[in-house]
Design a protein around this nucleic acid. Structure first.
Lengths: 249, 249
DNA sequence: ATCCAATAAAGTGAATACACTTAAGAAGGA
DNA sequence: TCCTTCTTAAGTGTATTCACTTTATTGGAT
């Protein structure tokens, strides 16, 4: 911050994440991968990236190491990093895995209970969803809005599970990059309605302190997303974006 | 390799893993963490390690980044890496998570089927286990031997699940460092017998192509290990080694 | 024209040097 | 004696440099 050697013309080194360049670089590379700027299987050139981001290779390498740890990159000695490929099978599997993990999270949440703040957020998400859905049809932007509501619900239950490893594994599932990055899977109003009802039931089970019921319901809930996804994949042609669909479960 | 500055006296830089020092360093640090040479919560000093292993800080940092990705270390900017702490709760939870994940793996294996080699290994593990157990009591070294048999069974089913993410997550569960590193949880012959019978049933379900039955059986199987563990924890005092117990499920 | 070998270019791996941040210790005041 | 502050040491973050490996290219031979 004090005396950056020179203001770089093209990429003004986006806002730095707290003190540390590696972390900032990491975020930028991750974004580039997730939004498809660099395609799967592609080999990553350290010097090119370091020039683009106007930093040395050191923080770039650090970021790449970390991203490999997150499972987004593969590493081969003396050959550097490549963007990991996710065949369609693996993407579908990821939903199953996430279903299983979020099921466990729901069970833990039911066993351990929610604190006041968490209850407030979840209940708010249920109410907001009800309001959004009561019209019977979507207006533009509603899906985006629902995605946030959905995220609040799942994130809060996850934090109520009080287990870091679980949270990290689920985060990894969310980071599975999706095939192509155009097209949004257009979910029907009825589908979203059904999933929101799932949320109600799951929360009931958790508040009733019924861990196993919570687990089964959550599992089925997430599996349902996979099902609609596979359905929309087989109905339409092939190239479908799942980047957003992933967050609409 | 050509002109190592000086042969270091104490730690002769163990055998290097394929071409790459970072990977070798990573293994050594990991081992040090898992066998308790460095204790939980402890802060890691890069220069000290680099001196001990007779390499520069660069490969050490690379290894630390990677280990943080594996979940063994925590990172804080400008403060470096610390050994992640695993409270007893988290360790017990890890068994639940692994149970869930291995359940999914068993389901996948049942859906996708085993190839000839995999069938051979699993069946061999079942036979070897039967032979080891038929005496009705253990001789010294039998537990170690059974641990290998057990590992073959689980590893092979996992590879039959044909999903890399799943395999990596389960590996992470196995890497949860256990509290102290003395004492072996002495499993009774009867317990091992019971678990080995589980193996038989799980394999039956998989060969019968009954995915959900395979999942439930596997899940219960792994959960059972957690149960015995908790039991032996509450019966005896506190300090118990779980390093080995972890591999005996 | 195709394949192989030698060579050059590009890229990664590791060491060193220096800048910056944090933690520790010493000195001074209340 | 205890707390505060300044100073200093220790430690992490980044850049730069060089060594080594891989890959691309060019020239020749079959």
């Amino acid at each position: 911050m004090t005396d950056q050697p020179e203001a770089i013309p093209f990429e003004p080194t986006a806002l730095l994440r707290a003190g540390n360049r590696s972390l900032s670089v990491m975020d930028q590379i991750r974004d580039a991968i997730l939004d498809g700027s660099v395609s799967a299987g592609e080999r990553i050139n350290e010097v090119r990236i370091s020039k683009t981001l106007a930093v040395s290779r050191t923080p770039v390498r650090a970021a790449l190491q970390a991203l490999a740890g997150e499972g987004l990159l593969d590493y081969a000695p003396n050959r550097g990093f490549t963007v990991r490929e996710f065949p369609l099978d693996a993407i579908v599997d990821a939903y199953e895995i996430r279903a299983s993990l979020e099921g466990v999270a729901a069970r833990f949440a039911a066993e351990r209970g929610l604190n006041a703040e968490e209850r407030a957020i979840v209940e708010q998400s249920l109410i907001a969803g009800d309001r959004l859905l009561e019209r019977g049809s979507f207006e533009p932007g509603d899906l985006i809005r629902y995605r946030r509501i959905n995220g609040d619900f799942h994130d809060t239950l996850l934090s109520a599970a009080r287990n870091r490893m679980l949270a990290e594994m689920i985060r990894i599932c969310h980071h599975v990059p999706m095939s192509s990055s155009r097209n949004i899977v257009a979910f029907e109003h009825r589908d979203v309605r059904r999933r929101h009802d799932d949320h109600h039931r799951i929360y009931e089970a958790i508040m009733a302190r019924e861990p196993w019921r919570a687990e089964i319901l959550m599992r089925e809930h997430v599996s349902g997303v996979k099902a609609s996804l596979v359905k929309s994949l087989t109905e339409r042609g092939e190239p479908i974006d799942m980047t957003d669909a992933a967050k609409t479960g």
